[in-house]
Amino acid sequence: MTSPDPLAVVCALSGVLGLLIGSFLNVVVHRVPRGESVVSPPSACPSCGHHVRARDNVPVLSWLVLHGRCRDCREPISRRYLLVELLTGVVFALVTWRVGITAALPAYLYLAAIAVALALIDLDVRRLPDAIVLPSYPVALVLLAAASAGSGDWGALARALAGAAALFLLYATLWFAHPRGMGLGDVKLAGVLGLYLGWWGWDALAVGGFAAFLLGGAVSLPLLLVGRAGRKSSIPFGPCMLVAALAALFCAAPLAGWYLDLVGLGAAV
């Protein structure tokens, strides 16, 4: 009997952890924009006010057992809670598969968690809260420093700092030139993403930085064409930045290789 693949086991465990984190992120997404505590009071049904019982707070399973309704008043529970838990679980599993069983895994799982929370908050309220973005700087630095210590690659940490500075300055320049076209929250988030992309590699920094604007255009153009948005409409850019950063972890190397081959520099690099 063959032993299970260790990476597959860790991916499965990360997926389960993602479900649990996703349940907490539902609270974060709801309360942080309102300036409320994420630890008290306990979660309650918005319709009848009854506190959610521990057995009804099991990710995914509780929603399915209750058929998506409150145990007390039978009012529907939004499918969004279920979808956020599932999304976080899938993202955690995919990030684990990509990063592998390495010292960098905790750092990139943290990125996955804040990516889900910030993307949803920005879609809801057109804002990237400082309460999540600013603490992510020291947390990311500590986790990425631990990853460099574990791998012995201190150059990656230096590259992360350079990436943070480069992406922050790029967004700050764009914000200064056209404040209405970009939120200050996007500028603050850019530095965090620059840390992660820079640590991963220069190709990830370039692809992740460029892809955010490409994705933003791909989202905005159809809305403009169908009249759902105007030239002065506020379209959240944070989700584009976060999706592009996560996508760069998976596709930056092949995309960079394809581009170098296209311009005839592949063999020279």
Rank of each mutant, 00 (worst) to 15 (best):
L255V: 13
Y137K: 07
G208P: 07
A112C: 07
A158L: 14
R228F: 00
M1H: 07
V226A: 02
A119R: 05
H51A: 15
A149N: 03
L255H: 02
L169K: 00
L17K: 04
A140C: 09
L224P: 00
L105F: 04
V29C: 01
A212D: 09
G150S: 01
A218V: 14
A160K: 09
P236R: 04
L189N: 10
A165V: 13
C45E: 11
H67S: 14
P129W: 01
F176S: 13
A172H: 00
D203W: 08
D186G: 00
G181K: 11
V65P: 13
G18P: 01
A160L: 07
L20R: 01
V187N: 06
A107Y: 15
R53G: 09
L224T: 11
V219M: 07
A44D: 08
A166N: 03
W258M: 08
A103S: 14
A211P: 03
A268K: 11
D122S: 10
V207E: 00
A256Q: 03
S233H: 15
Y110H: 14
L225V: 13
D5V: 02
G155Q: 13
S47F: 13
A212H: 10
Y108I: 00
L64E: 12
L193E: 11
V95G: 06
R34F: 02
C11M: 12
T96Y: 11
A145E: 05
A162S: 08
A218W: 05
A112E: 14
A146Y: 01
A158Y: 04
R31I: 03
A44F: 15
C251S: 06
H50I: 13
T96K: 09
A112S: 11
L170M: 09
A204Q: 09
V29Y: 04
W258I: 00
T102H: 06
L94P: 13
L141A: 14
V9N: 04
K188R: 12
V84P: 08
I114R: 05
A267W: 11
L128I: 15
I101Q: 05
P179L: 06
G185M: 01
